[in-house]
Design a protein around this nucleic acid. Structure first.
Lengths: 207, 207
DNA sequence: GACTGTGAAGCCATTCACAGCT
DNA sequence: AGCTGTGAATGGCTTCACAGTC
């Protein structure tokens, strides 16, 4: 295998494969194939093989893949073999929902701090945490060695919050505010725009 | 302009442009350019022009675009000139958060019904709605002429719920369950996988 | 001079098709 | 015979570069 750039879409699919492999493993299935995975997640078998091939040779020709083995490899590729501490900023409706979202914990993400600028919220319990004021950000990040942040503050404040997170050493940010945000080169940013997803649907319904 | 297939990525960007144009309009700005829009949303000017060109000629050479005018055109293209009634299924943490999410209402999406299978939740207020049992689905959809649904139920039930929505006439579904879901050809489906977004970040942090 | 609209070129991702292994 | 791994072919999106317009 030559070294080459890996498409972001492949990484997204790797994450999806890993969830499917975890299900196969739970069902006690020992061996699988690119065809089975493809059916299970809704892509082509060639796509599955190509994606996996970016990272190594995990299968046996004529046989397929060992489920446990492949699952472990994929988790390792995604960096999910250890728990990730995460700080969440913005304890509004969306923030509180994400804070207790089981899908994150199941995949090894642990929210270790929830911050909000509203003094009325400070001290309020949220899951097994307590909402803290913004000036606790540095402490939370440093004490827990936090590298990831989730931003669910109103759009107007998103860039400022992101700047703060970066200042205190966060290296990857998931932003839910529908605004263009900039970060330094060594920081990873992903945006999730919930309304956009509905609007793609209305476009298709209308055309 | 020739007829041609429009990339989905272009539609996503159109939605982003429309939000930026709405901000420019609010600020009272009358004229803009592909360069300004590009800077504002973080893409290239050529990309902006190409995207818009899929749908028509909205600008004036040497001048730029009229903000109000372009904004209106983009909203019309996205099918956002009328309010869309939406039904939401699954009043867990994520579902309740989305139900009162301002970002949806601001863009013309109105949740007209929240359903959950848990009898303990029935009758509980949620925003200005009340959580209803699943067997009210048909009534809600028919009475409000609902064409869009949001699914925030546990993964194991997502396909069943989607099947029900489709059965009662919903034509576009936004699914938050991390499972492969299938729908008939005439139904649009989009998946939002929140954990995947964090996992793409961990991949990048780890590599 | 400034900015749009667009064919052509370049680039990137997916699919194909088959050699290689069990 | 069955399935992986992969170079080659295809298809699609983005960028380039410039003619057209004000």
């Amino acid at each position: 295998m030559k070294i080459q750039k890996i498409p972001e879409a492949s990484i997204v699919r790797m994450s999806v494969y890993s969830r499917y492999l975890s299900r196969l493993d739970q069902k006690g299935i020992v061996t699988t194939s690119s065809g089975e995975i493809a059916d299970g997640v809704g892509v082509s078998p060639a796509q599955v093989r190509k994606d996996l091939a970016y990272f190594g040779e995990f299968g046996t020709r004529g046989v397929g893949y060992n489920v446990k083995d492949l699952h472990h490899h994929v988790l390792k590729i995604l960096g999910l073999t250890n728990e990730w501490p995460v700080v969440l900023v913005g304890a509004g409706n969306l923030g509180t929902a994400l804070c207790v979202y089981r899908g994150f914990r199941e995949r090894g993400f642990k929210i270790v701090g929830v911050l909000d600028s509203d003094p009325k919220k400070h001290g309020q319990p949220l899951g097994d945490l307590v909402i803290l004021p913004m000036d606790k950000m540095e402490e939370i990040i440093k004490e827990n060695d936090v590298k990831m942040g989730i931003v669910t503050v109103p759009s107007d404040f998103a860039q400022d919050i992101v700047n703060l997170l970066v200042k205190y050493g966060v290296k990857a940010i998931l932003n839910f505010a529908p605004r263009a945000i900039t970060v330094p080169e060594d920081v990873e940013l992903r945006n999730v725009d919930l309304a956009v997803n509905l609007e793609v649907l209305t476009f298709k319904l209308s055309s």
